[in-house]
Amino acid sequence: MNEPHDHHHAHAAGHRHPPQADHDDTLTYYRRLEIAVRELLIEKGIITAGEVSKVIEDIESRSPEGGARVVARAWSDPKFRELLLRDATSALTSMGFELALFLDTQLVIVENTPDVHNVVVCTLCSCYPRMLLGLPPAWYKSRAYRARVVSEPRAVLREFGLELWDRVAVRVHDSTADLRYLVLPMRPPRTEHMSEAELTALVTRDSMIGTAVCRAPS
């Protein structure tokens, strides 16, 4: 059960890790707090243990593969792509995603082109298109990413190994609880022969956040 280094935060000044990393089997105050809050809610009949398990299953069932299927469909079907950019909820429900996922938040798909590269952040907290990508990676929630990507996006992208031509405009989209963004990356060259399923495999999580681009297999 020893999972080394499970912190989900930027290393802010003044906060240093203890010499012993925080393991999953150590019951810290906040883990006890989660247990206590959950048990009180169950005892009071507000939720059931079964509901908690069901929601965790739902969370675990969502991964970037959902978003990748959407991108591959948009690359393969121009009508779908047009609808996706105009009305993402209609496009996604037409693919079989549950409407309930989109009821309390608007999803906007931003399209990369040869002239424009899009990047997504949430400077205020960690809003993220979870319905299509699952839980956000630790760096997305980190202080450093949230602070810097809006003021020096090109430097941040370079840290991710992505160097863009100067003529490409970089647009940074700051998400909120009510409005989330997903990047529609560009289809890599020399993939004309590939099926939708093959294309799905080329679409990475980071390409849909905007910190990477999709590449054809070499």
């Binding site: 999972e3 280094h5 499970d6 912190h7 989900h8 930027a10 290393h11 999953d24 952040v121 400077t123 205020l124 839980l135 990676p137 630790a138 760096w139 980190s142 202080r143 450093a144 990413y145 949230r146 602070a147 810097r148 809006v150 003021s151 941040v156 840290e159 991710f160 700051d174």
Partner: peptide, 17 residues
């Protein structure tokens, strides 16, 4: 946090527990 000074981004994966 937007625009405030900060260091490099740690990209190592952390398993969500």
């Amino acid at each position: 946090l937007g625009g405030t000074p900060a260091g490099p981004i740690e990209k190592e994966q952390h398993e969500v527990q």
